[in-house]
């Protein structure tokens, strides 16, 4: 009797420890501690740092109370629309360029020096030129986002082709495959994960850039919300906007991961 009681107790203890060690519990604890820390800091310095509660209220208000004529979700939609347009353009131009650069040493030799020259330049550095060329409308924003988003697409498409293990081509050839089968069976699937990784980086790059572009002058969008919060001295609006930006970025990356699992099941199988 007594022994089994002790055993029970240790079992409970072990279960509790396991529970505390579980990843998700730790995530939750970490977040809660952060919010508490945030709240205490805000209480001590309330003028410039809003309390979590105030930010939440601000976000709830934003659901139906317009900011500069548009409710929060519409602002979010504006930013997303710019990202998606620019992203589509970056993919449509970037993947073919990257694939060609990976495929042909000659084409690579032509494009690489120019690409390397522009690659390290932060896209936002183009803003003045973009405004000169395209005005302050949508085009200049989309242009800047394309510049930011296209770099990882090109790089990864190029490496995706270049780093294919030649023994895979050998295997196809020995089984009697022709060059069309080599492309379909090896080149495409083998470069897909790398291309996809590029698309993932590119999307987060695009999202970062849209906010930066909107900070520089826009009447709508998440970057605008932040500027607006500053000009009306409403820190809760600023932090609320930042939160929406962060959550959106996270959701986009989750979306891409799910998509990758669908498209390249052989890559991710081990992780689940």
């Amino acid at each position: 009797m007594a022994i089994s009681k002790i055993e029970n107790k240790t079992a409970v203890k072990i279960a509790l420890l396991e529970f505390l060690r579980s990843k998700y519990i730790l995530y939750a604890i970490s977040l809660i501690l952060f919010i508490i820390f945030w709240d205490i800091s805000a209480k001590m310095n309330g003028r410039f740092l809003p309390r979590p509660w105030a930010v939440l209220m601000e976000l709830i208000n934003g659901i139906n109370e317009p900011i500069a004529g548009k409710i929060l979700i519409v602002h979010l939609w504006y930013s997303l629309k710019r990202v998606f347009i620019a992203y589509a353009i970056a993919i449509a131009i970037g993947i073919p360029i990257g694939l060609l650069m990976g495929y042909s040493k000659l084409i690579n030799a032509w494009i690489k020096p120019i690409f390397d020259l522009f690659k390290p330049m932060p896209p936002i550095a183009w803003i003045s030129l973009a405004i000169l060329w395209f005005g302050i409308g949508e085009t200049s924003k989309v242009f800047i986002i394309v510049l930011g988003a296209i770099v990882p697409v090109i790089l990864n498409s190029m490496n995706g082709i270049r780093l294919i293990d030649p023994s895979l081509y050998h295997a196809i050839r020995m089984l009697g495959g022709n060059s069309r089968q080599e492309i379909l069976e090896v080149t495409l699937p083998a470069s897909l994960p790398a291309i996809f990784a590029g698309l993932q980086i590119s999307l987060s790059m695009a999202w970062t850039t849209v906010v930066a572009a909107e900070l520089m002058g826009a009447r709508e969008g998440m970057g605008f919300i932040i500027i607006r919060g500053m000009s009306v001295s409403n820190p809760a609006m600023i932090v609320g906007g930042m939160l929406v930006i962060a959550v959106t970025a996270w959701l986009l990356s989750v979306l891409m991961t799910l998509l990758e699992r669908r498209i390249c099941p052989w890559k991710t199988e081990l992780e689940h």
């Binding site: 023994s167 295997a171 020995m174 090896v186 699937p189 390249c264 052989w266």
Partner: peptide, 13 residues
């Protein structure tokens, strides 16, 4: 012809 390679050569996908 069939060739069994020394190195792994199955198609990952």
């Amino acid at each position: 012809i069939s060739f069994v390679f020394q190195e792994p050569s199955s198609l990952p996908w």
